[in-house]
Amino acid sequence: MPKYAMVIDQSRCVGCMACVVACKRENHVPPEQYRTRVLEMVNGEFPRLKSEMRSELCNHCDHAPCVTVCPTGASHKEDDGTVQIDRRKCVGCKACIAACPYNARYINEEHGYADKCSFCQHRLRAGKKPACVATCIGQSRIFGDIDDPNSEVSRMLRDNSYRVLKKAAGTRPNVYYINQFPKKS
């Protein structure tokens, strides 16, 4: 069984929002709701500025607080390492939304269940990459099997120093970030 993970090369993100719209169309996310977002952070004073571009999504944590708090088992961890939601079982108590340190979840306004990024599980099953990865203009998002040493994600994590978001929260995320800032050659 693979263990899916995403590596995000922040230096290659140009903030074009292709991922955001691709995700929404692929997963029928209701208007004004999102499974992925893009942050742009600029520090410094004119003209000495520094910018970080970062796309965020569900981290599919190994120690997922959303799974722990779910009272019905709707939120669960699957064998492929992804965190998924069984919509039939969700009662909409919103505990998982409170539990997620990454604010990755929302209540689907059209259907009422808690919702979030699924790593495009339906696409993975068809052998395709998640929609955001497939369309990422800067090829900033890289996806694959972290248990396979030959996969691109494994190679990326070997060759680069990486970080995860809110490491101290102890969630052990499966979304890794490399190149926080563009290389200044």
Partner: peptide
Amino acid sequence: MELTITGANAITFP
């Protein structure tokens, strides 16, 4: 810091 978030959900942001 100047922060711009595009694609945030009202239920968690701000």
